[in-house]
């Protein structure tokens, strides 16, 4: 049975997608204004993936995230103000400025961490799934990673173990076509990366990553499968990042195959598409505008919180290395 997003949840789904969108736009502004140390990898264009997947999860489930992690964290309900402060390296951030954009953790939300190493988080999420079985809970773990990570050894090692031991882990491939500048089609012969599931004897599903309802349906089925003790699923979401690999990457490489590639994907904007769906489902323009206004207030408050937060004292560099 195909699980569908309930109409009553549409408002919340749109709120999450719109929040991700606005969050990342403001992060990009930080960069352009020179307020942000380092770089950030934006989730713009991929909002339907994290939103659809996390809508299928319970509060006590786990997620492991990647370098492009802001969207996953927003979808899990992490505090946007603390995320922004972390991205600016401020004391008010989730890690008091020690992690930055690529390492935001929110253990109270089951977020085992964004991760700066491609594929580095996959075995960690898999271990969390083992832990859930060990402790006899019904929790599942979701591992988010890009197309590039599927060519790391940790992908194979982790999925193989999860399949062998029927661990409740769901592997979400965000196939946005590029690992920095390298087109996945130039370095991998498998057109649908989810086909690799066959090699592990587990389900592999390809979905339109620009369609939040399609993502939800696939994720919900995978989660259900995992909770019933039937093991992992690979869900490949075909998606696209609107910006370069990070905020400083002009992404000129994308036009070499198809000059209109970016334009074509942007025409399928997942946020705009779902807004139309929300209206079509009966929500008034005013109701949708109210959601957007609420998100805007939160994002502006988050920006202010982050900007106003002081930098940590230099002595804090020595804290949290070892306990005791």
């Amino acid at each position: 049975m195909v699980k569908k997003l309930a109409k009553k949840s549409f408002g919340g789904i749109y709120e999450t997608m719109y929040k991700m969108r606005r969050f990342e736009e403001e992060v990009f502004e930080f960069y352009k204004k020179g307020l942000m140390p380092g770089l950030a990898h934006l989730y713009l264009g991929e909002e339907a993936v994290a939103t659809g997947v996390c809508a299928a999860l319970n509060d006590d489930d786990y997620i492991g995230s990647s370098h492009r992690g802001h969207g996953h964290l927003v979808a899990r309900g992490a505090r946007t103000d603390m995320m922004m402060a972390e991205i600016l390296g401020k004391e008010g951030g989730y890690s008091r400025g020690k992690g930055g954009s690529m390492h935001i953790m929110a253990m109270d939300r089951g977020i085992l961490g964004a991760n700066g190493i491609v594929g580095g988080e996959i075995p960690i999420a898999t271990g969390a799934a083992y832990s859930a079985v060990y402790r006899g809970t019904e929790q599942v773990a979701v591992s988010f990673f890009g197309d590039g990570a599927t060519n790391e050894g940790t992908f194979h090692e982790s999925v193989n173990m999860a399949a062998a031991w029927k661990l409740p882990c769901i592997y979400i491939i965000e196939n946005n076509l590029y690992g920095i500048s390298v087109d996945i089609r130039d370095v991998t012969n498998t057109r649908d990366l989810a086909d690799r599931a066959k090699a592990y004897g587990i389900p592999g599903v390809v979905v339109d990553g620009m369609d939040v309802e399609a993502v939800y349906a696939a994720a919900a089925e995978a989660v259900d499968h995992a909770r019933k003790g039937k093991g992992p699923t690979i869900v490949e979401c075909k998606t696209y990042r609107w910006q370069g690999h990070h905020v400083g990457d002009p992404a000129v490489y994308r036009a070499r195959r198809d000059a209109d590639e970016k334009k074509d994907w942007m025409e399928r904007c997942p946020v705009r598409a779902f807004r139309a769906k929300l209206i079509a489902s009966g929500a008034s323009e005013a109701a949708v505008a109210a959601i957007e206004g609420e998100v805007e207030r939160e994002i502006q408050a988050a920006v202010k919180y982050a900007v106003d937060s002081p930098y940590p004292d230099a002595s804090e560099a020595f804290d949290d290395v070892l306990i005791g």
Partner: peptide
């Protein structure tokens, strides 16, 4: 642990 600011 360090990257999490002591959360983990």
């Amino acid at each position: 642990r360090y990257m999490s600011g002591g959360q983990a």
